[in-house]
């Protein structure tokens, strides 16, 4: 019989036990329980990914590589001194494209966590980790094994819609759950409308970085991979 991995057990436990339990207990809390319940669920969703990463016992090279990509994402705003222009998310997605979905997730989640140590942790930290991590992972899946061509325009379009439709709204959700007195349709519309301009500027800056910089950066990453023999097939061995 094939041995079941520890991380898949954690994944199953989270989805079948922990999240329903949280939802069930959440109904007992008085007052604005939805914020605590929602944030707990986000944290619980992060657990299986982190356990899978820990369980795999990542190699030294892989660890340092992820750390470097995270640091570049954080430093991006020093390198490009234009206000409100963030290359962070583009770099996360390009890491996902170059090194695969798992690395994409870790780069995203760790970038969110680590950058908040520099700029201040907030109630949004777990949400940001999830949003960035899932964005990096999605990029990894979509561009894996030439499913989508790594064309600058496709990269830019992907970055634009991923920020506008996934990362931005998920961050708006943390504000919605924290600040609005009740969850109703009008509040949801109000929050998403308020966040739209910020999300739009983020989406545009991500698309610009992807368009101008996506291909050159991918070439750099590919070159490093080829030079040091870190192609995806040999990574497992």
């Amino acid at each position: 019989m094939k041995k079941i991995k520890k991380s898949s057990i954690a994944m199953l436990l989270t989805f079948l036990l922990l999240i329903p339990l949280t939802l069930y207990l959440g109904t007992f809390l008085s007052g604005r329980n939805y914020y605590i319940t929602a944030t707990l669920i986000i944290v619980e969703l992060l657990i299986p990914f982190i356990l899978a990463f820990e369980g795999r016992k990542p190699q030294a090279r892989e660890l340092v590589l992820i750390a470097v990509m995270c640091a570049i994402g954080i430093v991006g705003r020093v390198a490009i001194p234009i206000p409100h222009f963030k290359a962070t998310f583009a770099i996360i997605m390009l890491s996902g494209v170059a090194f695969g979905p798992e690395a994409g997730f870790m780069v995203g989640a760790v970038t969110a966590l680590a950058s908040n140590f520099f700029y201040g942790q907030g109630a949004f930290t777990p949400w940001q980790m999830m949003a960035y991590g899932a964005g990096g992972m999605l990029a990894g899946y979509l561009f894996k094994k030439k499913r989508l061509p790594k064309n600058p325009f496709i990269l830019a379009a992907f970055g634009f819609f991923a920020v506008l439709l996934w990362v931005g709204p998920l961050l708006d959700c943390s504000g919605l759950f924290l600040m609005s007195p009740s969850i109703s349709f009008s509040w949801v519309i109000a929050y998403f409308a308020a966040g739209f301009s910020v999300n739009m500027s983020q989406a545009i800056s991500t698309a610009v970085v992807m368009l101008l910089f996506g291909k050159p950066l991918l070439d750099i990453l590919e070159r490093i991979k080829r030079k040091y023999g870190m192609s995806e097939e040999s990574e497992g061995g």
């Binding site: 030294a60 090279r61 590589l65 470097v68 430093v75 234009i82 970085v209 101008l212 910089f213 490093i224």
Partner: peptide
């Protein structure tokens, strides 16, 4: 100009840092 200059700096930084990361990784191993 600012944008293209920033991108070039970021590109140089990336290859510099990644080369370093491989050395660090091998040294750790």
């Amino acid at each position: 100009n600012k944008l293209t200059a920033g991108m070039t700096v970021l590109g140089v930084l990336t290859s510099w840092a990644l080369e370093g990361s491989v050395v660090t990784g091998d040294s750790m191993r």
